[in-house]
Simulated scan of single mutants.
Amino acid sequence: MSPLPFPVRIAAGLVVTAVEQARELPRHAVELPVTAVSQALQVSMRLQQTVTELAIKGDRALGALRPGDDVPSWATFDDDLTEPALPDPEPVAAPASRNGAVSPLRPARSGIPIDRSARPAPAAPDRGPAAPGGPHAVPEYPGLSIPQLRGKLRTLGIDDLSDLLAWETSHENRPPYVTMLTNRIATLSREK
């Protein structure tokens, strides 16, 4: 038997393929919505990638024309954050407590600390010897960073915070530490 001409064989192959596709049509009809959504998502992702690549190339080109910031304005770190500073204290008459004693380190009701160093502070209860280099409440205080101190402040009362503030102002007097302690004392005073 001689082989059939090439175009006839191609036509027969097309007919067989059409019949196979017709048999698979119900299965393809069910898969069609999923396939369409999948292809649409692929096109969308390719478009987003292309746009992002163009933006990156544009940033590189424009970055050569103008100097960039060393630290982006949106980048913040715990060490950079400071709690809002209170205004400088003004001399104000301090209200006396029920027994007439005035604490030299407690803030006034306004939240602004008042310098009461002229009056002697009431005697603090003896808590035993302090660890060398630090106050009684938090012996490791001198080596703490701002974030570490922030984590410990929530467990301390006003008296302990006042001791820390007194120790800080008499030793290193670091403004961020003084501000944080003062603000925490004011917050606890308002909560009472």
Rank of each mutant, 00 (worst) to 15 (best):
A85T: 08
A130M: 09
R127G: 12
V37M: 07
S189T: 14
D70W: 11
R106F: 13
V30R: 15
Q49I: 02
R109Y: 09
S44K: 15
L165G: 03
D163T: 05
P147I: 04
V92P: 01
Y141D: 02
K192N: 09
A130E: 13
I185V: 07
R174V: 06
T50W: 07
G58R: 03
R150Y: 05
A11E: 15
E83M: 10
R27V: 12
L14F: 11
P33T: 04
P142M: 03
L47R: 04
P3I: 08
R60F: 15
S2K: 10
R154C: 07
P91T: 11
S162M: 06
S170L: 12
D163P: 00
Q49M: 10
T155S: 14
Q48R: 04
E168V: 01
L62H: 11
P84R: 02
A29L: 12
R9V: 14
T187D: 15
R154Q: 13
V16K: 05
L165D: 01
D78H: 14
A121G: 04
E140G: 11
E191A: 15
D126T: 11
R150S: 13
S2Q: 09
L54V: 01
P5N: 07
P125M: 06
P107Y: 00
P135R: 09
P139Y: 00
A64H: 15
W167V: 03
A131R: 06
A61K: 08
A22S: 12
V178T: 08
A166P: 00
P142A: 10
S73D: 09
R184N: 07
E168T: 00
P26L: 02
D80F: 14
D69E: 09
P87Q: 10
F6K: 13
D78Y: 14
V71C: 08
V92T: 12
E53T: 02
I185M: 10
V30Y: 07
V16D: 05
A130T: 06
P139E: 00
I10G: 03
I185T: 01
L62D: 10
E191Q: 14
R174Y: 03
P122Y: 08
D163K: 00
T35Y: 08
M1D: 07
L47I: 02
P175W: 03
V19P: 02
P26A: 06
H171P: 00
D80P: 00
E20P: 01
T179M: 04
I112N: 06
E31T: 06
P142L: 04
P33A: 04
P91D: 07
L153P: 02
R190N: 05
E20H: 04
D160C: 07
H171C: 07
G58I: 00
L47K: 06
S189M: 09
V37Y: 05
A22F: 05
T155E: 14
S189F: 09
V19H: 11
T169W: 08
D69M: 14
V15M: 13
R116K: 05
A85F: 02
E24Y: 11
A166D: 09
S117M: 10
D69W: 07
G151R: 14
R190F: 14
D80N: 10
E31M: 11
W74F: 13
A64F: 10
V43M: 09
R46P: 00
S2T: 04
E191P: 02
N183S: 15
L181E: 01
